[in-house]
Structure formats: C-alpha cells, structure tokens
Design a protein around this nucleic acid. Structure first.
Lengths: 114, 114
DNA sequence: TCATAATATTCCTTGACACGTATATACGTC
DNA sequence: GACGTATATACGTGTCAAGGAATATTATGA
C-alpha cells in the first residue's frame, strides 16, 4: 500500500480528505461528520498520515488533522498525461471564458459550469 | 470494484492506460511492451473495459484497445477540490509564464519546471 | 490520585483480488 | 478441415487490507 492511488482507493479515506479540504478537524469531528466508528477513523488517519496525505497537531487531548497536498499532487501529475483527451477542444474556450469571467465578475453573467 | 479509483489503484492497469494514452494497441503489443503475461493483460483489459476506461475493436484475430477518457475525467473532477492547494500561488504565475513561453518559443529561454 | 474524555492500537475474521497454469474459443491460412 | 496465432476464460491459491470489538494510552480536571 505504498502508491498514492491505493491510498485514495478507499472511499472513507477519500471522504476524510474531502472533509479536510475545507478545514482541519479533530478525530471526533471526522467521526461524527462521516458517521464512522472512532477506531476506523483513527486507522484511516494513520494510513493517511504515514502516507503523507495529512499531518496532525496535538491540541490538549485532541489531535487536529490537516491536509498535506503533495501526495494528491502526484495523482494530478499522473492524470496530466490524459488531460488532453478532455481538455483539447475545451481548453482554449475555457481559458477564454475564465478570463472573461474575471473581468466581468461584478456583472454576474451566470455562466455555470457543466 | 466500482469506483474509478479502485480501478486505477492497480499498477499494471495504470501502465496499460498510460500506454494507451499514446495510441491504441493490441493485447499482444501490451503484453510485450509491459512484460506481462497474456492472461494478466486480458484480465486487466476486461476490468478496464467493463469499467468504461477502454473500448475494443475487432481486427481479425486481434483486438485493438483504445482509451475512453470519461472515467479518468472523474478522477480529475474529484481532484479539483484540492487543486487550489498547489495552484493557488502558482496559478497566475504559471499562466503568465506559459503565455510568455508560447510567445518566445523560438528564443529558448530555458525555463524548466519544478 | 481518580475519573473521564479523546484517541490509538491490538486481535480476529472475512472477503476481495491479483497471479499462474491450464484450457477454451475465434480467426486466418494452407 | 488441420494447424498456428491471438485472445479470453476457469480454477486454485496466497496475500492483504478493512471492519468490529475490546483494550490500551494519553491528557485533563477535580
């Protein structure tokens, strides 16, 4: 279980990572938000920590876990070889629209993605 | 084994997908290029096909496998929630440099990534 | 020091899946 | 129609990781 892919293959771990994307959390918070048992949360956090996806800080009895993005970036890097398949046509258009968006953010032109 | 993540968790399958990123291939080509046994290739291709990552076309006795990018796009979509973590600062700069690059491609300014 | 809260760890069981070997199926050629 | 090539499938086996229950550890506060 070394590769970043195997780590994120587990649904509960993906849920934890998504949760930590918004802000750092204690084990108990994760437990309640994701409706997982405490040992399960701790075990998954251990895997994530040892794999370098998260890091923890001691806060009294609690431990606060926060995201470390490097390993996720690996996934992104691997995916980059395929990105042309879906961004080929869209690419130029997207960039253009994004730029328009930034320039007209006040006008609320209601361009919603997908 | 339904999620796209579980599918790409397997190293040999990732290798196959990477290989198919360059061009479509027959089973035998994959077998030789990746030094895998033929049954292993066939089994992984079956998994990839049933999961929608590849599709096959009959060519005499051969079957040519080619990439179907939709499922990979799922991974990209999931990753998007984290992308800000590593592209926040770099983002604007990257775009800028990329544009510069395109405009000065003849001059070879030697900007290497990382 | 005792009680309680928060988190980590251990043990056990179970299921999934990747592999190898062997065999089956399909196609093309003589 | 027999043979060779290309690919698919079946079967048996070993490994490994996830889950549950119980217990251990660490910190806090009275």
């Amino acid at each position: 279980m070394e590769s970043a892919f195997e780590i994120v293959a587990e649904p509960n771990r993906r849920a934890i990572l998504s949760l930590l994307a918004s802000s750092e959390r204690s084990v108990g918070e994760i437990e309640r938000r994701l409706r997982m048992t405490q040992p399960s949360v701790s075990k998954h956090l251990r895997v994530l920590r040892e794999a370098g996806f998260v890091e923890s800080a001691v806060d009294a009895q609690r431990r606060l876990y926060r995201l470390k993005p490097e390993r996720l970036e690996e996934l992104d890097a691997w995916l980059s070889q395929f990105r042309r398949f879906w961004s080929e046509q869209v690419d130029a258009l997207e960039r253009h629209l994004d730029r328009m968006d930034r320039r007209t953010q006040s006008k609320e032109k209601t361009r919603r993605k997908k």
